[in-house]
Design a protein around this nucleic acid. Structure first.
Lengths: 203, 203
DNA sequence: CAAGCCTGTTAGCGGTCGTTAACCTGAGAG
DNA sequence: CTCTCAGGTTAACGACCGCTAACAGGCTTG
């Protein structure tokens, strides 16, 4: 398994450009001709690779949801008994996704309702499992916090981490990326820390 | 000036329903016939009240942006010399808007690009001033934090606070609302608190 | 009571969009 | 050398959408 030095498939090109365009102008705001033009072919040519426009969106959303979940599960296995390290690891993993696949993170919580019923159900199932992973981690660290509140906090922190697309459209090099990572990490930890009131004495 | 017990104008009905539909299915995903049907008239009837679909979106986005900014300015005047109280006040004000006008908060950062150039510029100007209000408040409280970082943190906290639409679609009564307010307030304060490292000694 | 505006209706136009049909071409396989 | 087929092309169809035109009913007003 090399680190993908080979050229991307046509399918992959299409998915990447479609993600970018959908994120920029919304699913209904992008025509198939535009997507085709973005990869150098004409609109109907896309139908050699996808069943339709809906299928592209479905593959994008299912894909990002699966990758988020499996990334989260990996982290959960790595930190089996250390709640603090687990939550930190989940946060880092999510930040990586948010910074690597900005358009997908945008689509992920914006165009879900444009999916066919079955695809939407699948994406929602994956999302729910991912959230449960986080809720479990948060409650392990903050046992007195009720589940509904933990879940709301997790969604809110997702909102915080997913604000990335609105920052730094241009690539300012790896330094800026590291700085953004560090900032988001601190903000997320700070938010979660506010869940339990600070204890005056030790644990 | 009473507290509006009178019936809403037709224009206001239309704006409210349009906001809901735009937030649910996206600007391009809603037809004028649907908006009309939502207020009991047929599609073209809307043109007695608005110049077009674009004009409805423009009025919605300019409106929420203006209200956010003027709300923020009001708070800034109330807490002229107390940075901590000012930031707390800005947070409370924003939470109120987010909980009162959930669809508008959604549209506000999602459908901006569907506006005509001039409207978009106006909304962006209002948004920029609003962000500046927050950045100033944050930097008064955390003087060592560089401006770019403060600005990124403000955007991230907006993402946190604006996650509200994804929670609690149904009205669970005023108790749930108070709980959500309190949670968001704590999370936002916790996030900002993480900007400056906690000082071991006093100030 | 008549005039006129306000607010609604229905019919329809022009344009766009997703998709299909029909055709073409170049690279491998036998 | 020919057959096949993956991966393109253009033309066109049907549906839909935003918007305008033309018309109508009901208040308000002089």
């Amino acid at each position: 398994m090399s680190t993908r030095t080979d050229a991307p498939t046509r399918r992959e090109q299409i998915l990447k450009e479609a993600a970018r365009l959908f994120a920029e102008r919304g699913f209904h705001g992008v025509g198939v001709d535009e997507i085709g033009a973005a990869v150098g072919i004409s609109g109907p040519g896309l139908y050699r690779h996808f069943a339709g426009k809906d299928a592209m969106l479905a593959e994008l959303l299912v894909g990002i949801s699966e990758r988020l979940l499996s990334g989260g599960r990996l982290r959960a296995e790595e930190s089996p008994a250390d709640p603090e390290a687990l939550l930190a690891s989940l946060i880092d993993s999510h930040i990586d996704f948010a910074l690597d696949d900005r358009p997908l993170i945008t689509l992920h919580d914006r165009e879900l309702d444009r999916l066919r019923e079955s695809d939407r159900k699948q994406v929602r199932r994956l999302q729910r499992h991912y959230v449960e992973l986080w809720v479990t981690a948060v409650r392990a660290l903050h046992p007195r916090v009720p589940e509904s509140e933990a879940r709301a906090a997790v969604h809110a922190v997702f909102g915080l981490l997913n604000s990335t697309p609105r920052l730094a459209d241009r690539d300012d090099g790896p330094a800026a990326r590291t700085a953004t990572e560090s900032l988001l990490r601190r903000l997320a930890h700070g938010a979660f820390a506010a869940l339990s009131p600070p204890s005056e004495d030790g644990v």
